[in-house]
């Protein structure tokens, strides 16, 4: 696996902890930036000195600037066109899923209920062919499902 740069945006410190622990076990080489809200995310990304991540995990419900707003800002910048964006939430409504797809997210991940599922999900996602998926966004394969994604995309 090539060295990946991740950016995680989540105001929930427990979820950040789970994510970092899971990531440490499956991809110890990967680097991760953790941001607590949308504003922090945008400040980081729009700072020319920052190293842009390969993949961003954006929590939907964050204070100040929420996930969708953040997504919109990112997608308006040509510089960040090829960042793979995964929207993240505990419970999703159809409206949130539709909106995220419409605003240009690449994947919608409903936070798993077990640690092993979280690990497996992150592992499968990190192994996706980002370039192809960014070019060909498909509505049917927008909501992440561990079983079907593992079969289709695992390299």
């Amino acid at each position: 696996m090539e060295r990946l740069n991740l950016l995680l945006a989540d105001d929930d410190s427990d979820d950040c902890l789970f994510f970092e622990e899971a990531l440490a076990e499956i991809a110890p080489d990967a680097t991760i930036q953790v941001k607590k809200d949308g504003e922090e995310v945008l400040n980081y990304l729009f700072n020319p000195q920052s190293i842009l991540p390969d993949i961003i995990f954006l929590d939907l419900n964050m204070p100040f600037i929420d996930g969708v707003k953040c997504l919109e800002e990112i997608r308006q910048s040509n510089r960040m066109n090829d960042i793979f964006i995964v929207m993240n939430t505990t419970t999703a409504s159809q409206r949130e899923i539709d909106l995220s797809f419409e605003k240009g997210a690449n994947l919608f991940l409903i936070k798993p209920n077990s640690f092993s599922e979280l690990q497996n999900s992150i592992e499968v996602i990190l192994n996706l062919d980002f370039k192809t998926l960014i070019q060909r966004r498909q509505r049917e394969q927008f909501v992440f499902n561990l079983k079907s994604f593992r079969g289709t995309f695992n390299s």
Binding site: D15, T90, N113, S114, F115, L118
Partner: peptide, 8 residues
């Protein structure tokens, strides 16, 4: 969900 995760 967190209870489940911490339990795990």
């Amino acid at each position: 969900r967190k209870i489940l995760m911490f339990n795990d």
